[in-house]
Nucleic acid binder design. Structure first.
Lengths: 139, 139
DNA sequence: CACGTGTACTATAGCACATAGTACAGCGGT
DNA sequence: ACCGCTGTACTATGTGCTATAGTACACGTG
């Protein structure tokens, strides 16, 4: 009998103070938006996540539930979980990000004495790194 | 005898799911970086915060402790709490923001199908709104 | 049938949050 | 010295969340 223990496509060093399931959700999200995992790819099963990340299966299942509720994964009971095709996001979610979440980041940046140029440049760097060499937006 | 119940310089509608003290910390931070409260200004006392926001004095004190630990307030026992002069932030804090925090925002933006231009523009808008008409960084 | 998969459920422990109190020290004004 | 504000320390309680440890069942495929 041979085992096929596929390495999961993200690594995590859990940091204290943030729920474990949140960190895994984020790592999975990041793997998807960066193209490391693509629509149609199989997502690690609950038991596989549990084993590889050394977390409880219930916690692993919680991760999957979150990702499903965000439309990132879709479930096939008895078969597995797949990375879903991107779907059109809700306008409310988009405006929450460009509103509250961006404002919070700017408040923090101003508090730290950062400059807009520095933050804008870092934004662009992250964008290119995650979205590939050709960002979706073109000048 | 007349009361001088000074209105605190921020309003809050508490939203569920986020600790009350975190929301107040953020509102205070925002008031400071936007210039609504300036270095040397008196910050509302623990009892005043408690009364105005209808939160427990221990919770109000927790807010003050956080703001003090971030260098935003300084304490005068028996006198009150003042908005501190901005101090040079730690390089580790700055790189955490332009690193992890910005990356998380970009992951979220990509997931929602936002475009870099839209996010960059919203960044700039928030910056100008909070930092005044003349941002610290100049093109 | 076996082996993978997802899912539901109970139970327990620990931690964070928020509250409700009491009490004390410091400071400034009277 | 007293009063009224201030900050601060402490105990206690309740709630909710997180994470774990289990068990069990349904689904799909080979």
């Amino acid at each position: 009998m041979c085992y096929s223990t596929r390495v999961i496509p993200f690594r995590l060093d859990f940091e204290p103070g943030i729920p474990i399931y949140e960190q895994v959700v984020y790592a999975a999200k990041r793997a998807v938006v960066s193209g490391q995992m693509r629509p149609g790819d199989t997502f690690p099963s609950v038991r596989e996540l549990s084993r590889e990340l050394k977390i409880n299966p219930n916690t692993a299942h919680k991760v999957v539930l979150h990702l499903v509720s965000e439309g990132i994964l879709e479930v096939r009971p008895g078969i597995g979980t797949l990375v879903a095709a991107p779907r059109v996001s809700a306008a409310s979610e988009r405006s929450r990000l460009v509103g509250r979440e961006l404002e919070q980041l700017v408040v923090e940046a101003l508090r730290l004495g950062l400059r807009l140029d520095d933050v804008a440049e870092a934004l662009s760097d992250h964008w290119q790194k995650l979205n590939g060499a050709s960002p979706r937006s073109k000048p």
